[in-house]
Design a binder for these strands. Structure first.
Lengths: 115, 115
DNA sequence: CTTTCAGGTAACCAACTGGAAACTGCCGAC
DNA sequence: GTCGGCAGTTTCCAGTTGGTTACCTGAAAG
């Protein structure tokens, strides 16, 4: 968490870091992507996965990501309506970075508790 | 670029992602760490590496990172004084994540230009 | 004497953002 | 007939932050 995306600042052209952070930089974005990494999930499931993300932010983050082509949003014609979010191909390409962050974080946590 | 760290929000206890993002989430933090990944660098070198980062932000980012133990700051008793920043052990542990982000970004850029 | 450079700090501003809470429409259940 | 759940949206507020500009010390160069 703890990340914010600034609207005006766009990725520096040609900078790989910017290019990638443009997609996964944004408050809670990594968490959402991580939740989706194991398959499609519905809005309420995502909310339950990360209860500390407010509905408003969850919505705006999902809309952002949809617009950037990182995930797809499918409304099922059921009642009550069900909405499914799923990583697109582009979204799946981000997973190695997310996984790496999680791995490093895990190592840091272990280090904390062992020392 | 494009990244902000929120002061009040601290890492969720026990969440690897938070733990890691707490250290590398913050406007321009990844860029700074990337600059430092190949060895110690001085303030003005860092500024030249990333001219789009204002001095103020560069300073505050470096202070943050120093306080979190990600890098060390050494003032050399020369005149004019020289200051060297270097990744600590903790900082080096973050590099796999940074590298992964850069790799993913590179792949995305290639994809863009080829299609 | 003045300028330049290193490595910052201080002040001020405007912007973007996240949080909280209330409201919506539709349906099935109690 | 009203309660709850899904999937949001809207409004309002306040906080945090980054950018910009100006300013500081000390030494050396022109």
């Amino acid at each position: 968490m703890v990340l914010k995306l600034r609207k005006k600042a766009t990725a520096l052209p040609g900078c790989p870091m910017s290019k990638c952070m443009d997609l996964l930089g944004g408050c809670w974005t990594p968490e959402v992507l991580w939740s989706l990494s194991e398959g499609p999930r519905r809005f309420s499931e995502l909310r339950r996965d990360s209860p500390f993300i407010s509905a408003k932010v969850m919505t705006s983050r999902l809309r952002d990501l949809e617009q950037r082509g990182v995930l797809t949003r499918t409304v099922m014609p059921t009642s009550p309506p069900t909405v499914e979010y799923e990583l697109s191909e582009l979204g799946k390409e981000l997973l190695p970075a997310i996984r790496s962050i999680v791995e490093v974080g895990t190592r840091l946590l272990l280090r904390d508790t062992s020392s």
